[in-house]
């Protein structure tokens, strides 16, 4: 039972990470209508910048600030130089231009930091684990990620639903042209939203550092999963992204944890492991396909 609970928490932690990425991606798509494949690169940039600064200065806090700064800077630069030209274009151009950006960022990072992954240890304050329920020791660091993620979700909820900027964002994702026609400085709004998304991606990347290796290609791995989250939740819906992230995070982690074991009852050990790993990787895509076939616009699409 405690093992099950631990896996669930791991799932929630993964889900929260996905949410940090999906929130930005879904906003950028919902409001600007741009498919940004380079969102994963912002995650990678945050991870590298934060991890490097934390390693050089020995301060986790400076690392966070560095990750924020680097990701936001890169995000605003991408928006200003490339994405701004893609607003009116069709999806094909957007996919290809941002695919080009991925290549550029990956190689630039390789040039600066080399091919070796960076490793970073958990900061001393957050090291160790605490007993949540009797018999379940859970790493403090992962717990912190969950808390940070939920706080960000709450903050975004307030921002989107209770502030003027949030109102414009909601209006923008429902009817872009109308907002523009009402005289809102839509370009500033676009840059803000893009920067916010980049910030969250950078945060996610930095927090992922101590759990996963910081390496080139880390962005694409999680990017595709994030797209699944965005599409399942409904493009443009933060609420949808939140529930879809948690759901898919838990399902993915659960499948990885339990499927090989279940298959071992029917297959030989190594084959069960390989097949189990394969099918668990397929799980979220299967869910996405089913969701799209039942509700082609996603689960939480407003007004549908």
């Amino acid at each position: 039972m405690t093992l099950f609970l631990e896996q669930m928490l791991n799932g929630v932690q993964f889900g929260v990470m996905l949410f940090l990425l999906a929130a930005g991606l879904t906003l950028v798509f919902g409001i600007m209508g741009v498919i940004n494949l380079a969102h994963g690169s912002l995650y990678m940039i945050g991870a590298y910048a934060g991890t490097w600064i934390a390693g050089e200065t020995g301060s986790f806090l400076l690392g966070i600030l560095g990750a924020f700064a680097a990701a936001a800077l890169a995000g605003v630069a991408i928006e200003y130089l490339v994405v701004r030209r893609l607003y009116g274009r069709d999806h094909l151009d957007q996919v290809l231009a941002t695919f080009g950006l991925i290549l550029i960022f990956n190689q630039t990072i390789t040039l600066i930091f080399g091919r070796q992954p960076l490793f970073v240890s958990v900061p001393a304050i957050l090291d160790g684990s605490i007993e949540i329920v009797p018999g379940l020791e859970y790493p403090l660091y992962r717990l912190t990620i969950i808390v940070v993620g939920l706080l960000v979700a709450a903050g975004l909820y307030l921002l989107i639903n209770k502030t003027r900027i949030g109102m414009l964002v909601r209006a923008g994702s429902t009817n872009r042209d109308m907002v523009r026609a009402l005289g809102v400085d839509i370009r500033l709004l676009y840059t803000l939203v893009f920067g916010l998304g980049a910030l969250l991606a950078g945060l996610a990347g930095f927090m992922a550092g101590p759990i996963m290796a910081v390496q080139v290609g880390m962005g694409e791995q999680i990017l595709i999963t994030t797209f699944v989250v965005v599409v399942v939740g409904g493009v443009g819906s933060i609420r949808g992204a939140f529930f879809a992230s948690l759901f898919l995070g838990v399902v993915d982690t659960g499948l990885r944890a339990y499927l090989p074991g279940l298959l071992r009852h029917v297959l030989a050990g190594s084959e069960a492991d390989a097949l189990g790993a394969g099918i668990s990787s397929m799980g979220i895509y299967l869910i996405m396909a089913i969701v799209l076939l039942i509700r082609p616009k996603g689960l939480f699409m407003p007004n549908s």
């Binding site: 798509f29 999806h91 699944v228 895509y285 299967l286 996405m288 396909a289 996603g298």
Partner: peptide, 17 residues
């Protein structure tokens, strides 16, 4: 059965599977 960005993503999903 889908279109637009959902079509892009669902074809990607099947390829990934």
């Amino acid at each position: 059965r889908t279109g637009g960005v959902q079509f892009i993503m669902i074809t990607l999903a099947f390829a990934q599977m």
